[in-house]
Write a protein that binds this DNA or RNA. Structure first.
Lengths: 207, 207
DNA sequence: TTACAAACCAAGCGCTTGCTTGGTATTGTC
DNA sequence: GACAATACCAAGCAAGCGCTTGGTTTGTAA
């Protein structure tokens, strides 16, 4: 399954919005605005203007402004969990599975869904507690993928640190790339992936 | 120089506010509120109430609300640059210098100045562009400390990845600890430091 | 053509926001 | 003890906020 067919099947199951639909376009613009200006600094008038309607008309599609933020986050997690799963299943060795996960997460942070992923990282506190709990549940599925691979590497004797700590350190390291990585800066995503693997001392030759 | 004497000399030079002064107490409360609720969600009334004065009286001490945010960030960077420098100079080998830097940064993120450091990471966009530029200048001094040590390790053949990439990955990994690390969770800051070093494959025996 | 719902507009309400104003205590100095 | 300077209060203004309301246009299907 390639990325496009994964997206299409999620749309068919109504788990994410079609980017071509009114709702999908709004969520895309919202992600962009929330990333650029922050959730609080983005007004419903900004959101409405971005899709060419009046501010009041937004509330025909979403009950509250926060619902829009929640939808951005939920749909992003759903899509990326599916993409991760596919990327990992395509690899064979534990080391390659880890590299695939790193590569996939870098892609989700710096590629098409980058705006939404940045929102997920930096606008977390703007979600109500109830919504936070819901999103956290979705994230657990996603996190288990990582822990399984890191546990295996640990048992192989390739990884010296605790898997759950490593995952959290990696979460930070990879999320943070959104603040500095630019695809046109002479470093491809593949290069960056290799740098991460190299920093961990997991060079290809050894394993 | 221990931490306390560093703080005192910075106060004497008027580079950071005395925590006991009115200004210092306000900045401390501001850091806490900004971290807990975010800059935008924190009102000047919240800030004033936290130090027991009326909202209007704030503007006797600071010209604008944003000036308070800027002051929190500037003073935090000044203090931590000094702490880092001291921590690093106390170590001898390159590996130990790196470990000292990691330990110091974890301390600044999760210790006394943790609230202010979290603000520095997560409220960056709330600063005006002019203030951002000023804070960035201060940060460059700080960053050079890291790059010098990482360059040395690279030349020693102990580090396989590019120093400037590693620094950015570490920035993310260490900053992110503020979202999950709890000192009472069975993992000390020393433990955590060792985990970071272990993740990088720099175990004590080898070097 | 008719019927009806979904999508949208124009206007604005009620509230909160950062900040200002004019005046009053409090503190330090000679 | 006179006199500033500093620190603060009480009140409120202008602007911007999320969201509501009542009504109109557009799409769809019989």
């Amino acid at each position: 399954m390639n990325q496009d067919s994964i997206l299409r099947s999620l749309i068919a199951e109504n788990l994410v919005s079609d980017p071509a639909s009114a709702r999908g376009r709004l969520l895309h613009e919202a992600a962009r605005l929330f990333r650029d200006k922050g959730y609080e600094r983005t007004t419903v008038r900004d959101l409405a203007a971005a899709v060419g309607i009046q501010s009041g008309s937004l509330f025909h599609h979403f009950r509250t402004k926060e619902d829009i933020l929640k939808a951005v986050m939920v749909e992003t997690i759903r899509l990326n969990t599916a993409l991760m799963q596919a990327a990992m299943e395509a690899a064979t060795t534990h080391r390659d599975k880890l590299q695939a996960l790193i590569r996939a997460e870098l892609e989700s942070i710096n590629g098409q869904t980058g705006e939404a992923m940045a929102v997920l990282v930096f606008e977390w506190r703007s979600l109500s507690e109830a919504s936070q709990a819901y999103v956290l549940e979705l994230r657990d599925i996603y996190e288990q993928l990582w822990l399984d691979v890191l546990d295996a590497l640990r048992k192989d004797g390739v990884l010296a640190a605790e898997p759950f700590v490593v995952r959290r350190l990696l979460t930070g390291a990879l999320s943070w790339t959104v603040t500095w990585y630019r695809p046109d800066g002479g470093l491809t995503l593949d290069d960056l992936t290799e740098q991460v693997v190299a920093m961990m001392g997991l060079t290809r030759a050894e394993n």
